[in-house]
Design a protein around this nucleic acid. Structure first.
Lengths: 197, 197
DNA sequence: GTCTATAGTGGGATAGAC
DNA sequence: GTCTATCCCACTATAGAC
């Protein structure tokens, strides 16, 4: 791995752990095993490095999501697979956490990949749900757009709850909750749901 | 308002806007119109001030939530009222944002009110849902605990999506989505839902 | 490409006068 | 209670040697 690469990787890690404001060039260099001269040779400064790091993280998230959401199979199973894939719950979402960083949000070039990631993700999940609805797997009453927003929000909010509690339990519970709610809209399982009220 | 009070209030604002790491004693003093001497007379330091500020913010959130969730009326309407109450979406949640602050999470006394707030909130909403279920407003199939976790996560995640997009639209959509999903579990509206699949 | 030296600014806090 | 002076260290970057 080249020196520039190591710098980007340590920036990604630190951005995830401590955020933009909490990450110093010094810390980045030390973790990368590179000196200041090296860093400022390859990058114009902290914002430039962050740009590279955030871009890479966003791409990665998107690729992982596409692999699961674009797989064959019933729509709800693909969404469930994406919800269950989530790992390292207590570390939170490396992209979502950036929304809490005022300096990231203030810089249009830093912010854009964050905006784009969630815009794409919500749209992609809405597409999967729409497909499921068109195939008759989901009832026509289900709204793909708002449901997709709820699914993504449940994930992002689940991270918040897990970090607050110091345990992944609430994350798992929130995910289980939204999937359970969805079963009422699944044509293959709804027969079993809430019939005895 | 006393000087100590103004210091706490400006700390609350800055913690909300910039987080713990991004907030300096200097900035707090300037916003409060107080000098360093004043600040260090009333508080032991930045963590001490943050403790006071976070405690106050947590109490406030809890009181507001209790006013809506503890009101009379159908369970789902009370939950909907709480979901719709949310304002200042783009500023995010003053408590939830603290979960992204490594220094807050590392200090047990700073972290505790954050943990406690979400623990209480999820439990309170679960209680409302359980009540609705026991009253026959909601179908027995609905699980109060996991549904409550989903509701709270939708809120917290909605903030993330809204901030990423720079617009409250996705927040509103996520909230609408979860409420729509819930209608299938409402004994007074489920008749109309998804019957024509 | 990478190193070391240097520099200005602000963070976070203490001390002691008033 | 509040003010000013002072302190040390980290942040972020530039300059120029190697």
């Amino acid at each position: 791995m080249t020196s520039a690469d190591r710098l980007i990787e340590s920036t990604r890690e630190l951005l995830w752990e401590r955020g933009y404001v909490g990450t110093s060039p010094r810390a980045i260099q030390q973790r990368a095993g590179a000196g200041q001269g090296s860093m400022y040779h390859h990058f114009a400064g902290k914002p430039d490095l962050a740009r590279a790091a955030i871009g890479r993280t966003a791409e990665e998230l998107r690729a992982t999501a596409e692999a699961l959401l674009g797989a064959p199979g019933p729509a709800l199973e693909r969404v469930a697979a994406y919800l269950h894939r989530e790992r390292d719950v207590l570390r939170g979402c490396p992209v979502g956490r950036l929304t809490q960083d005022p300096d990231v949000m203030a810089d249009a070039t830093l912010r854009e990949p964050v905006r784009e990631t969630f815009s794409w993700l919500a749209g992609r999940i809405a597409g999967v749900l729409r497909e499921g609805r068109d195939r008759g797997e989901l009832v026509p009453d289900l709204d793909p757009e708002s449901t997709a927003a709820t699914v993504v929000a449940t994930l992002q909010g689940g991270y918040v709850l897990a970090r607050a509690a110091g345990s992944a339990e609430l994350f798992d519970r929130a995910v289980a909750g939204v999937l359970h709610l969805l079963t009422a809209y699944d044509t293959s399982t709804r027969r079993e749901v809430g019939r005895d009220s």
